[in-house]
């Protein structure tokens, strides 16, 4: 399994959705794409739906918050972060949620080579309302993703390798 990843930061959910759409149309495997967002409209009764594990209510609520992304990315998890509210994790990063509870809500990024200081940086950005689009894959796939996402003008973008090092010059 490839553990390199590319993290792009966007100012809004709409811009991030557009970036995911670009990756999808560019044939980047969407099961290798994740999106992290908060500050979405809090659908009525979502907290109750989650606690009751009411899948239909949960799916409808998530759809209301993330729109078409629901149909593109593989799986969605929602977590309640103290002092922040609901955080949506769409795509494979949602699968790392349980293991991430001790390392903050983005602790799952460590499995893709993002080190602790950068994870905290991204958590701060998400708390400030930014939206993350994360692609993981082999270096060739990520170079293509970087080229495509670069055109969508993210606030910042960095590539990380399995050796837990930031790729020099990969930022925007």
């Amino acid at each position: 399994m490839n553990t390199d990843c590319l993290v792009a930061v966007f100012d809004s959910k709409e811009l991030a959705q557009q970036a995911v759409h670009v990756l999808d149309r560019g044939d980047f495997p969407t099961d290798q794409v994740s999106l992290v967002a908060t500050g979405l409209p809090d659908p009525p009764h979502l907290a109750e739906d989650l606690s009751l594990q009411d899948d239909s209510g949960r799916a409808a609520a998530i759809g209301a918050g993330l729109g078409a992304i629901v149909g593109v990315l593989a799986g969605i998890a929602v977590t309640m972060v103290s002092g922040l509210g609901l955080v949506f994790l769409a795509g494979p990063i949602g699968g790392g949620l349980v293991g991430a509870t001790t390392g903050g809500f983005l602790g799952g990024l460590s499995g893709w080579g993002v080190h602790g200081e950068r994870i905290r940086h991204y958590e701060k950005l998400v708390k400030a309302g930014k939206v993350l689009v994360i692609a993981h894959g082999n270096p060739g796939e990520l170079a293509r993703a970087q080229r495509m996402l670069g055109e969508t003008n993210p606030d910042e973008m960095h590539m990380y390798g399995a050796a837990d090092t930031e790729v020099p010059g990969a930022g925007v």
Binding site: Q18, H21, V22, R25, R147, M148, T152
Partner: peptide, 14 residues
Amino acid sequence: KERLLVAYASQLSN
């Protein structure tokens, strides 16, 4: 403009 962005970024930029 949005269609152009997707067309360029996903196809022509490569």
